[in-house]
Design a protein around this nucleic acid. Sequence first.
DNA 1: TCAATAGTGTCTATAAGACATTATACT
DNA 2: AGTATAATGTCTTATAGACACTATTGA
Lengths: 242, 242
Amino acid sequence: MKQSDEQAYLASYNRQQFDAPLYSVDIAIFTLHDDQLKVLLVQRGDFPHKGLWSLPGGFVDLQEDTNIDITARRKLLTKTGVDAPLLEQVVSVGNKHRDPRGWSVTTLYMALIPYAPSAGFVDSVADAQWWPLSEALTLELAFDHQQLIQQARQRLQHKTAYTVLPLHVLKTPFSLTQLQQAFELLMDKKLEKKSFRRRIANAELLKEVGEGVPAGGKGRPAALYIPAPGSERHLFTRVFGD
Amino acid sequence: MKQSDEQAYLASYNRQQFDAPLYSVDIAIFTLHDDQLKVLLVQRGDFPHKGLWSLPGGFVDLQEDTNIDITARRKLLTKTGVDAPLLEQVVSVGNKHRDPRGWSVTTLYMALIPYAPSAGFVDSVADAQWWPLSEALTLELAFDHQQLIQQARQRLQHKTAYTVLPLHVLKTPFSLTQLQQAFELLMDKKLEKKSFRRRIANAELLKEVGEGVPAGGKGRPAALYIPAPGSERHLFTRVFGD
DNA sequence: TCAATAGTGTCTATAAGACATTATACT
DNA sequence: AGTATAATGTCTTATAGACACTATTGA
């Protein structure tokens, strides 16, 4: 009978009975290009804030989406043409004022992808564009997306110090010099070459797969590597570059 | 005119026009008591899952709450009598199946508080109770709260390795032995006494404020400490107990 | 003096910082 | 040979682990 009480309650439950906040997801996708950290923005085609640049994102499709990770991936794909298999949740922000339509909550995701494969695709979407982060930080963005970008960037910087997150922005195979440059750009900090290589070598995260041309086309050829399986989940017990 | 277009849009915007997920916050509050990590649970008085134990939490009050942190703090206070000034966001979980009423998103918060001050208060709220974590993990809890507790516990354990989170579960003043016990219980791992004390001393996080009785009432009295201002934000560059 | 708890000394192991040196390619 | 880039050697420094030792209290 307790069981049937619950069923009666659910049968008569009306989701619209209580006023609820708007709920959305937003995605900060970063990449490296021209020795710069770039973020993908889309120009809003609808109100509110029509015409302003913003993070890709949007509302949950209650029929199609089974969870919010899927919502984030779908929104990113349809709005920008970019597919990011590894979206990481950063934070949720919810308050009365961030959206002119009223009380609103968003869950912010972050991801890193190599530049080339997506660039072609993105270029075909007229209103999606990679922005150098330094420029993006000076734009007037929709909603509180300026702050969201900064939170994502902070998480990025922090996590780079004890994970191998930068692996995700490189096309494979890559050289150790390229990997170090990726770390340096994501951390916004120069690293000692020897320390860097020791750390990577000791962790046994990479597989050597041959040789390639050096950076700049001159000099000694560099050994090339691909990530070893499971390497993305490696955690260092000591932060880097302190 | 672009401005007035936007205003016309907002004036005619109907929040109920699109079906939205339910949105709630849930809070996992931990404390230490009887040498055990405990979590605060409330017994559900309403459907769904009436009668089951659950994390305190609930829906946003669009009139009263200005942001979700405030929602979390208010829900915790009204449901359990506990006021936690430092709620930390853990993760948001949203999917089609976690709530029988349909698509639902929750933002999970976590906090640590000293046992005594709240315990009295909590005891007066009939349906709120501290549970040893080991027991809580065997209970049938409402919704996906079993998994939420585990995620909060994991974050707790992880953060204890590079912050001074355990400071928050102690009544001040405390001895270094008590502090070490707090670390050990939160990390679920024994620590070397000398390493622990060296680490704390080097970080200059504590202020000595006298002497007190030793643990167990026997033996040499222990020096007592309080946290120095700003110590809660200290980050170690090397994880502990590895 | 013994038991119990608080606190210190000291040696080793690990990994990062600094920076000099060697290696391999192209012109 | 000269230059550019890749890769390594090695000394110093910082901090954790291990564990023995001393210090201070009450019974």
